[in-house]
Design a protein around this nucleic acid. Structure first.
Length: 495
RNA sequence: GCGGGUGUAGCUUAAUGGUAAAGCCCCUGCCUUCCAAGCAGGUUACGAGGGUUCGAUUCCCUUCACCCGCUCCA
């Protein structure tokens, strides 16, 4: 039985994990709201990351604990931050559309071969000569001897009328290149003009880089150290798709690890390992993940290595979708901000003041909301042998509700004892108390929201103080004393 | 952004140019000593806007959202 995205989305809505944003107004493309359980789940994943990064960072290769501090920067920064980072202008890839075939190409991916003065043929940059010859034959154009290629970026717009687009029959069907900028624009103050234009952050990372000096000067951290931040980021995606996987407003968990350039390659290896381990620790199954080093051709120009942690989502299968990228960004960002802000970003080694350098950065950048989606997809388990037909196999630590307290009947002393137990347990964990309806329905409901344990109060509880524990995945039951319930939960959740 | 598809209750599905039906879920009560049981009752829907029409959920137009493919994802 395969997991169907439709069913997962339906369950998310039915049980209050994730809703279409602005649903009662007809929705809004690329935005999602988190319901009561989705919020709990997201917070659990977020808190686990914060705990494992900032509160209790990993032990380093030399046996000493790493030093990582937290940050919460503004979503809107001085717009020059995004000019220096390259998000405004530099990184946008102009696209050209073909009027005839409705296809769209990256301008810098197309090459043009000039067969004659007015018959030019556009081809993909990776097209081989043999393919190109076929293309010429099809167009019935005698091809030039040398097949010399000119990048489309070097061709004047006025010459577009001579070009046959890669998949077109007619020439002159390519339209003017359009720049796509994914930054969300806004205006500061009540009037709108270019003077007060600003951007919603496209990533949380830049907030870290621009506070690097502040953190150094205020916290006594020394290289190597990290600054971690969790928060919303915004990208005006051309085409949001696949539930919450690519949305225009999303949440990131990013850490910038500042280190000596000489040590950077070792730290890169360290964080690759560490981040793989972490995703497994929150419950993702090894068999559904892939760990992938980017090839040279995939790397952005300033990166000396990028490592993807990807998950096999139902909508990407048999392929994978990115959960986290661990990138060796060199000192690119700090250097950019040093130039852009005229603020020195040099680090002076306190043990050796002659040793000055701009730290290199290893960046483990994870998608929190993508992580939530992976947890949901991973947990979704079809089981036709149980009333609900499905259950969510969250780890106890990630489950939105840790346990449900269920009086077997709504009569006698059952509800009273159940309520007392509930009042005790809820001081420690997110607990459900559910009294109404028959017990089977209540178990089924808890299965659907992934509650790992149900404690049921029956006549034996009244007689001898024991309750049944019903385990979600196996539906097996055992009896334990009511006084041991909290210890039992502690052991399962934190132990 | 392009092409195709789909929008009726929380879900699954009906019917209809003239008061929109059912099953499941949900809620209330009864009953129930362990997995959506039974009985009685109850809430909830034509994605939005416009047009045609005496009257539109139904026909037409526009729009929005979702799904699939293409494109894209610094």
């Amino acid at each position: 039985m395969t997991k169907d995205m439709k069913d997962i989305v339906a369950l998310c809505k039915r049980r209050g994990f994730i809703f279409q944003a602005s649903e009662i107004y007809g929705g809004i493309n690329g935005f999602w709201d988190y319901g009561p359980l989705g919020t709990e789940l997201k917070n659990n994943l977020r808190d686990a990351w914060w705990r494992d990064m900032v509160i209790t960072p990993p032990i380093g290769p030399d046996g000493t604990p790493l030093e990582i501090v937290g940050l919460d920067s503004a979503i809107i920064q001085n717009p020059n931050v995004w000019v220096s980072s390259g998000h405004v202008g530099g990184f946008t890839d102009p696209m050209v559309d073909c009027q005839e075939t409705k296809k769209r190409y990256r301008e810098d991916h197309l090459h043009v071969i000039k067969a004659s003065d007015d018959e030019w043929v556009a081809v993909h940059e990776e097209a081989e000569d043999s393919e190109i010859e076929k293309r010429f034959k099809k167009l019935n154009i005698k091809h030039a001897e040398d097949l010399e290629r000119t990048p489309l970026t070097d061709i004047a717009l006025s010459d577009y009328s001579k070009i046959y687009a890669p998949d077109a029959k007619e020439k002159g069907t390519l339209l003017e290149p359009k720049a796509f900028n994914l930054m969300f624009e806004t205006y500061i103050g009540a009037t709108q003009s270019d003077d007060n234009k600003a951007y919603l952050r496209g990533e949380t990372a830049q907030g870290i880089f621009i506070n690097y000096k502040n953190v150094l000067d205020s916290t006594r951290v020394r290289v190597p150290f990290g600054i971690a931040q969790i928060g919303k980021a915004f990208r005006n995606e051309v085409n949001p798709r696949n539930f919450i996987f690519r949305s225009r407003e999303f949440e990131q968990m990013e850490m910038e690890w500042f280190c000596d350039p000489e040590d950077a390659p070792q730290w890169f290896e360290f964080w690759k390992e560490e981040r793989q381990r972490w995703w497994k620790s929150v419950g993702l199954k090894d068999k559904d993940m892939i760990f992938r080093e980017h090839g040279q051709d995939e790397l952005v120009f300033y990166s000396q290595g990028t490592f993807d942690i990807e998950y096999q989502f139902p909508f990407t299968a048999p392929g994978y979708g990115e959960l986290e990228g661990v990138a060796y960004r060199t000192n690119y960002d700090l250097t950019q901000h040093q130039e852009g802000s005229k603020t020195k970003m040099e680090y002076i080694d306190p043990m050796d003041p002659k040793n000055r350098y701009i730290p290199h950065v290893i960046e483990p950048a994870a998608g929190l909301t993508r992580g939530v989606l992976a947890l949901l997809c991973d947990a979704y388990t079809v089981d036709e042998n149980r009333p609900s037909g499905v259950f969510l196999d969250f780890t106890p630590a990630m489950a939105p509700k840790k346990a449900a307290i269920l009086p077997l009947t709504a009569k006698g002393e059952h509800p009273e004892i159940a309520t007392k137990l509930y009042l005790e347990l809820r001081k420690h964990y997110a607990i459900d108390l559910d009294i109404k309806q028959n017990i089977g329905k209540r178990y089924a409901r808890q299965d659907e929201i992934g509650t790992p344990y149900c404690f049921t109060i029956d006549d034996d509880t009244v007689a001898n103080g024991t309750v049944t524990v019903r385990e979600r995945n196996t539906m097996a039951q055992e009896r334990i004393h009511i006084d041991k319930v909290l210890d039992y939960l502690r052991e399962k959740i934190d132990g």
